[in-house]
Write a protein that binds this DNA or RNA. Structure first.
Lengths: 193, 193
DNA sequence: TCCCGGCTATAACAGTCGTCATAGCCTAGC
DNA sequence: GCTAGGCTATGACGACTGTTATAGCCGGGA
């Protein structure tokens, strides 16, 4: 069996993640997506029998895993270092696309799924939980008590996701930098305690 | 002149805000909106010559002003009290709609606007800036230095917006409560300092 | 009473949407 | 060489999109 097909499949997943983070899920059509991914329209339902929702779910998991990988690596040096890497990732995304791209996970999370098919939203929930777990564990390793570590991790993910949205609306990176300053102070204080 | 028309116009704005916070802007069609608002389709472009974007911008400003009003009132008692009211507002929204509604301002902020028409996104940016200014001023009145007050206000808005999205994805109110606990601690510490 | 203007009802325009069915290419294994 | 099957190209399905044009209703002012 040739591998060309699977390559096209992977291009579709990455392309979907890219389009969703810019326009949102509903505004991303299957036709545009295939064009953007240089993939054949007819193959969409061959690779993704569940249709658009299945493709979106996979795109969310894919984008989430890219972030998780960076997060896992950098958190090894400590929570604050991991936070810096997390922030740098989003800073790069927002600035590198001239404020046109945000987080595909957030985009999927806030759009109403078609009746009875929450698979994409569920994938978004898992990604958020994954990020929180990583950050929470790193805080725990530095002596932050469990319930506080989990809450701090949630605060980090929520605040960063929110600030990316603020940046896009304002076309200004300041909100992300403000959140960076404050979160760093909060995490540093928690770890030092 | 009868006032019936203007009433229909107001219903459309409120209805748009309600639909956008549930499904997002792109997934909200003009026809569904008029049906949901018991308003005539033909009147859409009578009241809103700028079309869907103008209606969305007004819906965002409307929703934003409702929150601002509560915020302004409750912040008079102090930043932490204002924060509590802000959080309670979103808690009620999320729980009262069984996790089906979030923030219309965020929804509009993260969707790519049609080429050349950023009016709705600009309205979202203004609403965010308004909320931040209110919170920042309240912190300033309690002795928090200006740059820190502004950054804290941004953190509050970003974290709450983000946590509402997390709640919807997970169908769980825990993220908002976690953020509530942490933000309250942060603001209390800042004010006491 | 008449008319004027804000408002609405209706239909149409030209697309696009997600999804599916089918026929055919083209390569891997025998 | 030949066949099986993964993959693709094509076209169609019905439904829905934002927007516009036009004809008409229906109330208040003269």
């Amino acid at each position: 069996m040739t591998e060309q097909g699977q390559e096209a499949r992977q291009r579709m997943v990455a392309g979907a993640a890219d389009m969703i983070r810019r326009r949102g899920l509903n505004a991303t059509s299957v036709r545009e997506l295939t064009k953007h991914s240089a993939a054949p329209l007819g193959s969409t339902y061959h690779y993704f029998p569940g249709g658009k929702q299945e493709l979106a779910a996979e795109a969310v998991r894919y984008a989430g895993s890219l972030v998780s990988k960076v997060l896992r690596r950098e958190l090894a040096a400590g929570p604050v270092e991991g936070l810096r890497a997390f922030l740098a990732l989003w800073r790069q995304t927002v600035l590198g696309t001239d404020f046109q791209a945000g987080c595909p996970v957030l985009a999927v999370a806030i759009e109403e799924p078609p009746a009875g098919d929450r698979s994409a939203v569920a994938a978004a929930a898992e990604v958020f939980a994954d990020w929180e777990a990583l950050m929470g564990a790193a805080l725990g390793e530095r002596g932050v008590a469990a319930p506080d570590a989990a809450r701090l991790a949630t605060l980090v993910v929520a605040a960063v996701e929110g600030s990316v949205a603020l940046c896009r609306a304002k076309r200004d990176i300041a909100p992300l930098d403000a959140v960076a300053t404050q979160l760093e102070a909060v995490l540093s204080a928690a770890v030092a305690r």
